[in-house]
Design a protein around this nucleic acid. Structure first.
Lengths: 204, 204
DNA sequence: GTGCAATATTGCAGAGGGTGCATCATTGTC
DNA sequence: GACAATGATGCACCCTCTGCAATATTGCAC
C-alpha cells in the first residue's frame, strides 16, 4: 500500500497498459499474417484488440510499429553492463556477437514464438524492413552510448557509430541467413556464421 | 525520322518525362530543405513543379521517394563489368570499395551537388533513412546478381546476400562519417576509412 | 498535314493513416 | 469519499495515395 512504486511499476494501471500493448501487437500480427499488411486496417486491429482506433495511436506511432511490436527496446542489463565493462570475453568481435545475440533474443520483447513471428512477417512484407531499420535508427543512440562506455575501459578500433552499425548489420544478416536456410533452428545460431562471412569479405 | 528509337530513347516524350522528374525532385528538395519534410505537402511540390498532384504519383510512388530522387539506380556499366569479371584489383575488399564509391557517386543520379543535397536531407530528416534503406532493398537483387556473376570467376568467401549488405553498410557508414566530420571533402573519400574500421571491429 | 494508336495528364471520389483537442472514465492517494 | 493524474474515447480534420474515366499530347504512317 504505502510502498512507493518502484521503477518497474506494476500497479493496475501499468499492468493494464502492458496487456493492452500486447493485445494490440497480437491482433496486428495475427491479422497481418492471415491477410497481408495492406489488407488490414488500423480500425480492424483496434477492434480485435478491443480498443478504439484513437487509442491505438496512444500506444503505437504507426500501424507498422504495432505489427512489428516495436515500442520497447531494452538490452538485457547483465549483457549490457558486461559489455560496457569490456567483457564478457575481452575480444571485441566476440563480445559484439554476444550483444547481437542478446538483441535478437529480446527482439520482439516477449517470447521466442513472437520473435520468430516478427521475422516471418518481415520476410512476407519487405516494406516493413524500412520501418525496422528506422526503429533501429531511433534506438541507435543507446547502442552508441554502450560502445562509448566500453571505449573508456577498452579502446575501440572504430567510431562508436560504426560499431553500432555493425551490430545492426549482423542482426539483419543473421535474420536473412536464417530465412535463407529455411527457418531452421534458432536465429541467434546464425550470428557466428555471418560474422565470419563479414570479416572474410572485408579482409579478403 | 525513320531512325528506330534506340533503347536510350530521347524522343520528345522521353525528354519531357525526364525533365518533369527532375523538376519534381528539384522542387521537393528545395521545399524540404527550406521548411522541413512534414511542412511540405505533395500538393505544394506538384504546384512548384507545375504539374497536378495526381501526376506527381505517376512519377514517384511516395513523397519520400521524390525528395530522395529515388527512381533510377544504375551502376556504371564499366565498373559493373569489371567487378563481375573479378576486377579491378582482384582483391575482394578493394573491389568492393570501388563498387561503393561508384554507388555513392551515381547516387542521386545527376550531379554532385544533388547527391550532397540528398545526404544533407537524410541527416535533417532521419525518417527518410528508412525509405533509403527500403529503396536499397528493392535494388538489392541487382547487387546480389553482380556478386553472383563474380562468384563464377572468383569464388566469394560469403553468400552474395551478405556481400550486398556489406556494400550497403559501407555506403551508409561513409555517409555517416562524412556527416560526422562536418561535411568535409567528398563523401566517397570516406569509404576507405570506414572500410578499415569495419574490418577492425570484426577481427579485433 | 491528317488520322490513328499509344501514352500522359488531369480531375474526382474515396479509402485509410495519423493528429489535436475536448470530454469522459478509471486509477492512485490521502 | 474527494481530488488529482492519467488514460480512453469521439470528433473533426489534414494528408497520402489509389482507381477510374475523361481528356490532351505525342509518335507514326501515309
Amino acid at each position: 500500500m504505502t510502498a512507493p512504486p518502484a521503477p518497474g511499476d506494476v500497479g493496475l494501471r501499468e499492468r493494464k497498459k502492458r496487456a493492452r500493448a500486447d493485445a494490440i501487437v497480437d491482433a496486428a500480427q495475427r491479422l497481418v499474417l492471415a491477410r497481408g499488411l495492406d489488407a488490414v486496417t488500423v480500425e480492424e486491429i483496434a477492434e480485435a484488440a478491443q480498443i478504439s482506433p484513437r487509442t491505438f495511436f496512444n500506444y503505437f506511432e504507426t500501424k507498422d510499429d504495432a505489427v512489428l511490436g516495436q515500442g520497447s527496446f531494452e538490452l538485457d542489463a547483465e549483457v549490457r553492463e558486461a559489455f560496457a565493462a569490456g567483457g564478457p570475453t575481452g575480444r571485441l568481435s566476440a563480445d559484439v556477437e554476444v550483444l547481437v545475440r542478446s538483441m535478437l533474443g529480446a527482439f520482439a520483447g516477449t517470447g521466442h514464438h513472437q520473435a520468430e513471428q516478427v521475422l516471418e512477417i518481415l520476410q512476407l512484407e519487405p516494406r516493413l524492413l524500412g520501418r525496422h531499420f528506422a526503429w533501429f535508427e531511433r534506438h541507435k543512440s543507446q547502442v552508441v552510448a554502450l560502445f562509448d562506455r566500453r571505449h573508456t575501459s577498452a579502446p575501440l578500433p572504430a567510431d562508436a557509430e560504426v560499431c553500432a552499425m555493425v551490430v545492426f548489420v549482423l542482426a539483419r544478416a543473421a535474420m536473412d541467413d536464417w530465412g535463407r536456410t529455411g527457418h531452421t533452428g534458432d536465429v541467434v545460431d546464425h550470428v557466428p556464421h555471418v560474422t565470419r562471412q563479414l570479416a572474410a569479405i572485408l579482409t579478403a
